[in-house]
Design a protein around this nucleic acid. Structure first.
Length: 593
RNA sequence: GGGGCCGUAGCUCAGUCGGUUAGAGCGCCUGCCUGUCACGCAGGAGGACGCGAGUUCGAGUCUCGUCGGCCCCGCCA
């Protein structure tokens, strides 16, 4: 099909173009037929331009335009002129194109919804007609911002001496971590590839291969349930460096974020980013990914109640549990019902409830106040900095649930009190470091890696590996932005001996290790340099940069909460011949074998 | 695996205590209209109330199941 090609984009017309003949290629956005004059807005990705004709002068053109459906694809040739009535709300509002010629390139079916940011749509309709959803200006902005981010990433790492190398998508399934997506092998019936959860082992092999600095923007796959911030396939910026310390990786990462924010958002991020150890993050914020946009810091109170008369606290102290709490300014006015509502947030963490104490002009008020001594009251008031009219909320439980529960309470209060300003966007970056290497899984009755099994322990904790693995800290780090984890990485184990030891702590048998990770152990023996790296959740980063509400908004073709792709209908059943070829026989759930 | 909210016109939604012929706005169609820009005005068409059972004299409305969307817990090294 031959047609007049555009001479300018719709969104680019300005008063300086007045008098010029232009050709526009685009979509019919809207027709306003006033009888004696017809206005037609023509849209492409850059914006909208108003065109017009006068039916009295061009009756056949008028007829054509009146027959156009919205979203039909057209070309228009005409002359730019200044408008009689400019529209200051539009960038192109000073001018309009007087149509001389118009051609219909492809008539469109009536779209199920107008192409506009203003219109409210359900997620289902948007995803079913994703190509129309993506035609909307906001979605165009999000994906173009995403493109800008890609380009900057490539430039940044190239400048810092990184080599971009692709790692395979068809890999082997390894134990540990998320559930794998499996791909059956036709050539080897009964055997399966796994889609990578991350290129972790390959990038370590690249370090052993001497590439020194590797980076890749790469798709990763995890077959787990979805969330607003979790898709089964997602994109990581994956990097690894040799002969480095943690510090090198943190500052390189900070440099990238500072540059991204500066160039894409024109926001200057102060570097270095603040750092908290895992322990500090938990004891001060009750989370390993705290949101620093608001206060409500936690205080540890165990020492204050070391010799208390209050039964539940005395018992907690005796059992080595933790007592902690937070101050709620002006909270003395809370009703029983409101307090009960707050207590509800700690129950999922296994706590029976909260102890509350109101402090105001008439003194203390609390169901437990008569069991709390004067000196304890004074210490509490001081520790929490209580003022008249404040409320103290206290929890007693083992260390982890105690702080986690208060962290949940802190988030709930921030939400309830609207402490996160919507109109005043801020970006609070935070490194959380020194995570525990492993944690005990009651469900699996063994230690599991907190980060992944290739993470190096902090050297001074090495002796604890044999005696108290749960107390060993890892050389691991997460980058947190406004309460969302956006990066995670570590210095890796680079000797076969240590790697083997960690595998055994994780309860892997020698046989399992040999079978699943033998190639890694072997490679580590052929001159593996000290190395470490980080993986950044690109979709989440872009979501936060764009101010989008959902990961889906910054992914061109995302899956629904149940993992379906509504635009192409994946996953779908396949022809029996395909299964036959793969040696696969499908048994539906509940069906007898 | 579990919990919550939702599914009614092309879109977004209302629909009372279970009761006559199921509504609104936008969009669409027809007509009128020479400066609109979410044009305006007048008229009109458009519905297996997601699907399947059940309760009932009677179900959009109640119950169960199922499919789909969203959010959360578990899960996500």
């Amino acid at each position: 099909m031959s047609f007049p090609k555009r001479t300018i984009y719709c969104g680019e017309l300005r008063s300086s173009h007045a008098g010029q003949e232009v050709v526009l290629n685009g979509w019919v956005a809207r027709v306003r037929d006033l009888g004696g004059v017809i206005f037609m807005d023509v849209r492409d990705h850059s914006g909208v331009s108003q065109t017009l004709i006068r039916p009295a002068e061009q009756p056949e053109l008028a007829c054509t335009i009146r027959g156009l459906t919205p979203e039909s694809v057209i070309w228009v040739r005409g002359t730019v002129q200044l408008r009689e009535n400019p529209n200051p709300a539009l960038p192109t509002g000073q001018v309009e194109v007087v149509i001389a010629e118009l051609g219909l390139l492809n008539p469109a079916l009536l779209p199920p919804f107008p192409i506009s940011d203003e219109i409210a749509l359900t997620e289902e309709v948007r995803l079913r007609y994703r190509y129309l959803d993506l035609r909307r200006p906001r979605m165009q902005r999000y994906l173009r911002l995403r493109h800008q981010v890609y380009q900057l990433i490539h430039r940044y790492f190239d400048r810092h001496g990184f080599v971009e190398i692709e790692t395979p998508m068809l890999t082997r399934s390894t134990p540990e971590g998320a559930r794998d997506f499996l791909v059956p092998s036709r050539l080897h019936p009964g055997r399966f590839y796994a889609l990578p959860q991350s290129p972790q082992l390959f990038k370590q092999l690249l370090m052993i291969a001497g590439f020194d600095r590797y980076v890749q923007i790469v798709k990763c796959f995890r077959d787990e349930d979805l969330r607003a911030d979790r898709q089964p396939e997602f994109t990581q910026i994956d990097l690894e460096m040799s002969f480095v310390s943690r510090e090198d990786i943190l500052s390189l990462t900070e440099g990238l974020f500072a540059e991204l924010w500066s160039e894409v958002l024109t926001v200057e991020l102060p570097t270095p980013f603040p750092r908290l150890t895992y322990r500090e993050a938990m004891t001060r914020y009750g989370s390993d990914k705290p949101d620093l946009r608001y206060g409500l810091e936690l205080q540890t109170l165990t020492d204050i109640f070391a010799e208390t008369e209050l039964g539940i606290f005395r018992k907690a102290v005796a059992e080595g549990h933790t007592i902690a709490g937070l101050r709620l300014e002006g909270g003395a006015a809370y009703s029983r019902k409101e307090l009960e509502d707050l207590a509800e947030t700690v129950r999922p963490h296994g706590l029976p409830g909260l102890i509350w104490l109101k402090y105001d002009s008439s003194g203390w008020q609390s169901p437990v106040i008569k069991h709390i001594s004067e000196s304890e009251r004074d210490a509490l008031r001081q520790r929490l900095q209580l003022q008249e009219g404040d409320l103290a909320l206290l929890a007693a439980a083992p260390w982890e649930p105690c702080y986690s529960a208060l962290g949940a309470l802190r988030r709930k209060l921030a939400d309830q009190l609207d402490l996160i300003s919507k109109n005043n966007v801020s970006y609070r970056m935070l490194w959380v470091v020194d995570f525990p290497l492993v944690e005990y899984s009651e469900a699996e009755r063994r230690y599991v890696a907190r980060h992944h099994p290739f993470t190096a322990p902090i050297e001074e904790d090495l002796p604890l590996l044999d005696t108290a693995p749960e107390r060993v800290r890892a050389q691991a780090y997460d980058l947190v932005l406004n309460g969302e984890e956006i990066c995670g990485g570590s210095i890796r184990i680079h000797t076969a001996e240590l790697q083997q030891k960690v595998f055994s702590i994780l309860g892997l048998t020698t046989e399992q290790v040999q079978q699943k990770f033998g190639f890694l152990l072997e490679a580590l023996r052929y001159g593996a340099p000290p190395h470490g790296g980080i993986a950044m959740g690109l979709d989440r980063i872009i979501m936060l940069m764009a101010g989008a509400e959902s990961l889906r908004d910054v992914i061109a073709f995302p899956k629904t909460t149940s993992g379906l792709s509504l635009v192409d209908g994946a996953p779908a059943s396949v022809d029996p011949e395909q299964l036959e070829e793969l040696g696969i026989c499908v048994r539906m759930p509940g069906q007898l074998s």
